[in-house]
């Protein structure tokens, strides 16, 4: 049984099939890439897995348990963490609080314990703070803990999104164009970071990315989407050799060029 198994994922928006019968899977510790031209339905697939939109058809199994039809927060709590293509950090909160917030849904204390300054409340607050600092340290942001996220440069905001996603305790981590807007040295650093995190937490990673460097280095399996449909899948080497993929990306005339 795969850790994550997605079958026949289908979604239409006003008659347009955004994702059409897309099936794929990911094993524990595996990094899977999803590529395709703009508008191919990659981000929609992520939004379907995380419950932002309801599915038209299909099923999403995490460790054999059905996630389709559940609320977004339930899906996250069952072990799907994510980052966003266009960074969505919580503006009113500090860097540290952004990460703490993602751990807060697992805090068991109630209003009574809070209002009486109970032991459960105080202990859990300490735990959450310490855990959040640890996640920040993992991505190298611990010295910015008290900053507002909007004061961070773009590359660091991307890292903060990853730290925040880590705090949700994911079994599968969904990264939506995590290298967009990074400079080449940042991209290399990022590739190293994802590898380390996979080693440490052992989760599966699904990554959408246009930077082929990221996909080809990290992923053991790649799925190519075009107009919502699965065009091809395979190892990086297989995908590189696939003419249909090259056509979809670059157009027919330039078919001779390699990706």
């Amino acid at each position: 049984m795969s850790l994550l198994e997605v079958r026949n994922l289908t979604k239409s928006f006003g008659g347009v099939r955004a994702v059409d019968d897309f099936s794929f899977g990911a094993e524990q510790g595996e990094i899977v890439g999803i590529i395709g031209p703009n508008g191919a339905g990659k981000t929609t697939a992520f939004n379907l897995i995380t419950g932002v939109y309801p599915l038209d058809r299909g099923s999403i199994l995490l460790e054999g348990k059905e996630l389709a039809g559940k609320e977004q927060f339930e899906i996250t709590r069952s072990g799907i963490g994510r980052t966003f293509q266009n960074i969505r950090l919580f503006k009113g909160l500090s860097v540290l609080e952004n990460v703490m917030t993602a751990a807060d849904p697992y805090s068991p204390y109630g209003l009574f314990s809070l209002f009486t300054l109970g032991a459960a409340f105080r202990r859990r607050e300490r735990e959450v703070r310490a855990a959040a600092m640890e996640y920040l340290a993992l991505v190298g942001l611990e010295k910015y803990a008290d900053e507002k996220p909007s004061n961070l440069p773009y590359g660091l905001q991307r890292k903060l999104e990853i730290a925040r996603a880590l705090a949700t305790g994911p079994k599968v981590l969904l990264l939506d164009e995590p290298a967009a807007g990074l400079n080449p040295s940042e991209v290399r650093e990022f590739i190293g970071l994802v590898g380390e995190l996979r080693e440490r937490f052992g989760f599966a990673v699904l990554v959408i990315e246009h930077r082929m460097e990221v996909i080809m280095t990290l992923c053991s399996r790649i799925y190519v989407l075009n107009f919502g449909k699965l065009l091809a899948s395979g190892t990086p080497a297989e995908i590189r050799a696939n003419h249909e993929v090259t056509e979809a990306y670059i157009g027919k005339e330039d078919a001779s060029c390699s990706v």
């Binding site: 977004q72 927060f73 994510r82 909160l93 917030t101 409340f121």
Partner: peptide, 25 residues
């Protein structure tokens, strides 16, 4: 200054992201 306040501020600034962080908004 508890989990409640942080989660409230989170959902105020981005409800979709808040849901994706496991917050029952």
């Amino acid at each position: 200054n508890s989990k409640y306040g942080r989660q409230c501020l989170a959902l105020r600034s981005d409800e979709l992201a808040a849901k994706s962080m496991g917050i029952d908004v």
